[in-house]
Design a protein around this nucleic acid. Sequence first.
DNA 1: TTGAAAGCGGTACCAG
DNA 2: CTGGTACCGCTTTCAA
Lengths: 330, 330
Amino acid sequence: MNIRDVAEKAGVSISTVSRVVNGSELVKRPTRSRVLRAMHELNYYPNLNARSLAGGRSRILGIVVSNLQNPFFLDIFCSFEARALQQGYEVLLADTGYRTDRLKAGIRLMIGRRVGGLAAIVSEMDPSIQEELVRVGIPAVFYDVATPQKKISVIRLNYRHGMRQAVEYLYSLGHRRMAYIGYPMPLGPTEERKSAFLETMTAHSASSFTVAAAADGFVGGQEATRELLRSGFNPTAVLCVNDITAVGVLRELRNQRISVPKEISVIGFDNIPLAEFSSPSLTTLDIPRQRIGHLIFDLLAPSHSAVRSIGRETMISPELIIRESTGPVP
Amino acid sequence: MNIRDVAEKAGVSISTVSRVVNGSELVKRPTRSRVLRAMHELNYYPNLNARSLAGGRSRILGIVVSNLQNPFFLDIFCSFEARALQQGYEVLLADTGYRTDRLKAGIRLMIGRRVGGLAAIVSEMDPSIQEELVRVGIPAVFYDVATPQKKISVIRLNYRHGMRQAVEYLYSLGHRRMAYIGYPMPLGPTEERKSAFLETMTAHSASSFTVAAAADGFVGGQEATRELLRSGFNPTAVLCVNDITAVGVLRELRNQRISVPKEISVIGFDNIPLAEFSSPSLTTLDIPRQRIGHLIFDLLAPSHSAVRSIGRETMISPELIIRESTGPVP
DNA sequence: TTGAAAGCGGTACCAG
DNA sequence: CTGGTACCGCTTTCAA
């Protein structure tokens, strides 16, 4: 059941079949229908591998993310994919689990598939991989790692801005002793959150403390909280690297019968859907993930609205969303 | 930078390069290193499209799911993918968003890519699509829809068993008026949960009521709860089609100052990670998603542990996990 | 409007 | 151990 079979059955050449398959206008009506019927009767599915090979061109886009289980990445992927599919692109996904080897493997895979564009929305991106990508010269989008170039666009989040909003908001509520719960690994983007936190705290000469979560997820937040409570620092507010960590924090505080926000305020980062449905609901910094997903597509797909941003850096600012998990200092 | 360039640069034939790339043993040391160096210097990435085409064989597996945002599907995908990658397979993903047209498109895509196996873990599977898949004759795994055949394996969940556990547990706590919150669309698998619920209720001559959520997610559960409360049925317990719906329910009950489990008990389905971290934590029926993900791989990848189950039906039983969201009737 | 033929970049079999 | 070569299935000029 290849193009030749169809051609034979329809009594035409393979070129004609190809034209029909690709919706070319220049095929006469009756011919077209003969071909279509043949295709149907033979149950023909064009071989996309052959097509990609012959065409050379790429209706395929790739995206690699750090942790699908984190709604931040998942949402970006979903909105990106939706947009891409809708525009007739295929999309390839790789989840690295924050591991550099998997990142490398994922990117190699995509290059091997000759994707037309590649987004690396990962916290663990390292320079060597970046160079590799630049060398092959396919359009790419990086997340939070710098050096935009010819075909390399960068999306950056303004963590300082976000952190400042959060800290100042808490400060205005009377908080002076705040803790930050971050990632275990010293990954670029997450470190920026942390240092932004520390700087802002210093600027306000408030007292700060940081803990590293052992993992990206509920459990990480929970364990970090235990550590934090053991430390004796006694914060009145806790800022978290992201919302899932914050939900883990809420959980542990509840276990320890510490009331939020009465005794401690908690604030997250990302504004995932769950933030609104946790108990208490979570004050957080919204990151417009859907917009980011769409932007990634526009940056990767040729001739699109985002041309102006291609090869440049796009800065996105988080926005503070106040809910129930924060309140005045006791 | 194709295989020919490499061959030329290394002063060998393309066959030799191919051997090196594929790690064949029968290449002499010095030759191999010359080739490797050439590959490196030219920055060579084998064209996977060409490889898939020529090889005909399929180191690609496909999986299509209904809703990635639902951790049930996500977890299955992740464990499936992890296993597959680790075994050197490529995996293709499609998310249908419960839409039949997207399901069809996704499956066509995978067939076009000539995947070696295809898992359709979707609630909206319809017979025509199933037939299509059978016709092309690629190994497949279906979820909750029947007719195992030569190359078609089926994974089924024993909803009746699960529902019975849940209902009887609640009954033993004194509950007699229970409500069920299900999916909006009459999808096979989810209907089974509902009818299992109703039957068990009838068997115990307890009083039941059902509502359909408007969507799969927190909001769906929340809105369904409002509807339920308005109905005047006044249940002492609510069973939900899945955990995310249940979390939406918890939220709305909290909004209405209805205490869980003091006034109403809530029970979910799936046992997603969040179930343990919601407030209150969620009593639910555990579905071993990781096991399912691995099983899917074993069913699809040739010559594997699961051979005995290939082309047959594997029944999996949910197991009741009791947490804080359920308690004795007031 | 349709057909013929030259690739696309590999794989795998057959010789040597 | 290495090279030659016939495909894999489709796209894409170029002619007819």
